[in-house]
Design a protein around this nucleic acid. Sequence first.
RNA 1: GGUUCGCUAGCUCAACUGGAUAGAGCAACUGCCUUCUAAGCAGUAGGUUCCAGGUUCGAGUCCUGGGCGAAUCACCA
Length: 597
Amino acid sequence: MNIKAEIAASIASAFKELFDAELGQEAIVLQPTRKDFAGSHTFVCFPFLKQSKKGPEQTGAALGEFVKNEVEAVANYNVVKGFLNFELSDAVWIEQFNATCANSNFGQLPVSGKEIMVEYSSPNTNKPLHLGHLRNNFLGYSVAEILKANGHKVSKVQIINDRGVHICKSMLAWQKFGAGQTPASSGKKGDKLVGDYYVKFDQEYKKEIEQLVADGVDPEQAKKEAPLIQEVQTMLKLWEDRDEAVVSLWKKMNGWVYEGFDATYKRMGVDFDKLYYESDTYLLGKDEVSKGIDKGVFFKKEDGSVWVDLTGDGLDEKLLLRGDGTSLYMTQDIGTAILRFRDCPALSQQIYTVGNEQEYHFKVLFLILDKLGFEWAKECYHLSYGMVDLPSGKMKSREGTVVDADDLMQEVHEAAKERTEELGKIDGFSEQEANDLYETIGLAALKYYLLKVDPRKRMMFDPNESVELHGNTGPFIQYVHARTSAVVRKATELGLFESIESGTGVADLQPIEQALIQQIVGYEDKLKEAAKEYSPAIIAQFSYELAKEYNKFYSEVSIFNEPDQEKLKFRVLLSAVVGKTLKKSMALLGANCPDRM
RNA sequence: GGUUCGCUAGCUCAACUGGAUAGAGCAACUGCCUUCUAAGCAGUAGGUUCCAGGUUCGAGUCCUGGGCGAAUCACCA
């Protein structure tokens, strides 16, 4: 059955028979053989020399000989230093390949019964999405897809931060300086327009501060006394009191932002199953904080502010409710988490895709939920990813170095167009088809670029590299997929394909063919690993290696000039399976694979 | 200052969680399109894995100390 287990079992009995040593199955670990050596499974002998009472080479040779005789799948073995490498027979690989072909669910693991909620994006509604959101969105979307492929039921959600001081700032600025401007009248996307007023507020606010300081007011004092900031606070208060005019302005401007966001999400290719709004959850959060006081988990200070004491957990005291009774981010997050588990009682895990700058926040949040007695608190996970830097340094909204999401997607589209036209690859494409192709290529370049690095790590975003089509890039993988499609297309035209879909009858393999099968067969393990690590990078790397391997095969081995019909058909089938696998793995990254490019 | 994380080829990233000669891409150089898509393939060159100790058959990976960088520790989000 499982070859790995079979070999391990055989090694165990070899130890018993040859060296009279009992080894637990767990102690015997087989690792993949490195590329430069013959074989697929490697057993490291060094740790077991005490049992064998022999040198590493002799130990390896003795074990190898024993296993080769006992396990039919093992065709040969070799020992390099203390490393025992097993080479499986072609028949085994062909059998595995045929099994893969026959498995219509290949790449989709069995239903696990687990239900997982993945939160991502979660923007503020006062400014447009930027490069940081792109990493966040692509990561969240991809992790959700990876979990689905692992058999879990997944819902994608976000918490939209649609209220608060920062929202009021853009509202106030629009009211004062907007002159009734709308997305329609200005020709701007709604989120961009609102963002402009957020910036406008900041500019005007700064002017006021400067003026006050020039008049001799203390700078710290000036920040609090500036008329604009005071008006904002008044507005926030009015909003909380459900003042009709303020609420209607709030609805209008948020509506603009949502229209803009929707367009951006659509182009990004991400989606959500359910949306949560801070304006709906912050009151629940306040309630829960009050309950926490009653339970004695939280305490109130003289000024009316509410705190939780986490010093026993090695952290500090944490504020949960301001002295004036208004809520904070934390307040709202407590409410949102509780609401989600109420909405989905079967939920077994919740994943928050949020930048690593908020690690402390989530540590505290989960701890508080635990103290409130929610059992599911330990099933909350902060998928913490690193910030995106530009070659010029950090992105700073104040310094205008933020890379806008819409602009960036347009740029990658243009770059894909330019390079595709240079190569003259669009003969026979209609204008619409060509345009779709540029979009597909550009977005794959961008997504792959952002997802191929370990999510936990801070990364450098080089605009030139992100639109690159050569090397370790999304378009390279798309290209290889298109190649496999071309092979299948030609085989279909020749009437060869239908007869071979079910499997192959070849008897022996070229080394490169065997290597390809090995790669494909390892796909589901990578899928599991990617889910365990919450890392699309593992899928990206798998895709790249498979694509590279196929290209090697493509240049080394002739497909349609092969005289042996059985071999010819096998190579077509192999191409088809590689193409399917590439398409599936790229889909997990949110990238499409065109059939021609 | 406390806590957490990072440091690998000129640049951007890998390294199956302690295993073999530390690998890819970009950039540079050399070959290969009359043949299934050259967005490709093959090759050359590039390394004291930040430094110093330690642990063991074996360390980029683990422990200690140090250096540099980042995040966080707000009645911000």
